[in-house]
């Protein structure tokens, strides 16, 4: 059976149309969409900053000594980047693909599958950026960020958002049903949430666990966010940048290939 390419494989700027569709829907419910990134950091900062910080005292790490609240503040942004991008290209994209047949409807227009998927991934990253911007405002009100370097959280959110959006899309391409997402959430997202230098320094872990943590993308997003939020020297973030770029370079084409295998028969 010969399978000649039947569509241009490389996405063009038309992918923005897919992004626009999601942006249109998002704007209609912006009030609800804005609430989690505005409220979540408040909850965490109150719980950890007032409740827990008194018990743990200041955090002493290679970068210096800071309050526990200041330590976790950038990590909250990193966690939000992971969750908004990952949940967008898993649950939300799956609903559009599987239940609403939105991708099928788009495929009858000049859009290609690659443009649809890339538009969705870009949208997932966009949600990470929007969430980060909102959290940036809230956390700055607590005086926990260093300016202007904290503005670098936004490009960090774009890169981290792309990384998790690509990962989510790969899962969306392979899960048989929406319930299956429990698996990557439980085995991939939750451990990262806890063990990526988010709520305690990685130095506290045994050497092997530190090594494993270095393999996880959230560790590197946390690294970037902490450097941006606390004004650490930027050259030290080069490994994290390199890791996340490489991650995207591998997972983005993988998401496109896996989606084509799933949807085009």
């Amino acid at each position: 059976m010969n399978r000649r390419p039947v569509s241009p494989r490389l996405p063009t700027r038309r992918l923005l149309r897919v992004w626009q569709r999601n942006w249109l829907v998002y704007r209609q419910t912006w009030l609800i969409s804005f609430l989690p990134p505005l409220l979540e950091p408040c909850f965490y900062l109150l719980a950890f900053g007032i409740g827990l910080a008194q018990m743990v005292g200041p955090v002493i790490s290679s970068a210096g000594t800071i309050s526990y609240t200041a330590f976790i503040a950038p990590a909250l942004v990193a966690i939000n980047i992971m969750q908004s991008a990952f949940f967008e290209t898993t649950y939300a994209s799956f609903v559009r693909m599987y239940y609403q047949k939105t991708f099928a409807a788009m495929l009858a227009t000049p859009l290609t599958l690659e443009e649809i998927i890339t538009g969705e991934i870009l949208w997932g990253a966009t949600k990470a950026v929007i969430g980060s911007a909102l959290m940036l405002i809230v956390i700055s009100c607590f005086g926990l960020f260093h300016f202007p370097s904290a503005l670098l959280l936004l490009p960090a959110a774009l890169l981290g958002g792309l990384a998790f959006a690509c990962a989510g899309m790969v899962f969306t391409a392979i899960v048989p049903a929406i319930e299956t997402f429990n698996l990557p959430v439980f085995l991939f997202i939750t451990p990262m949430f806890l063990f990526s230098g988010t709520f305690f320094p990685l130095d506290n872990l045994p050497a092997w666990a530190q090594f494993v943590a270095q393999l996880l993308p959230l560790t590197h997003v946390v690294e970037l966010c902490r450097a941006a939020g606390l004004g650490h020297p930027l050259p030290a973030t080069a490994p994290a940048l390199a890791y996340l770029t490489l991650w995207c370079l591998i997972l983005f084409p993988l998401a496109l290939i896996a989606m084509r295998r799933r949807l085009i028969h």
Binding site: R21, L24, V25, K101, T102, A105, A108, T109
Partner: peptide
């Protein structure tokens, strides 16, 4: 594809959008 109109078997209209938005957004895909 730009010169074809497809009316598929199943109604894959966009439930997140209104009637008018369904038409206008679809036009943007073209």
């Amino acid at each position: 594809k730009a010169r074809i109109g497809v009316c598929p078997q199943e109604n894959n209209l966009d439930p997140d959008l209104s009637v008018r938005q369904n038409l206008e957004m679809y036009a943007r895909y073209f």
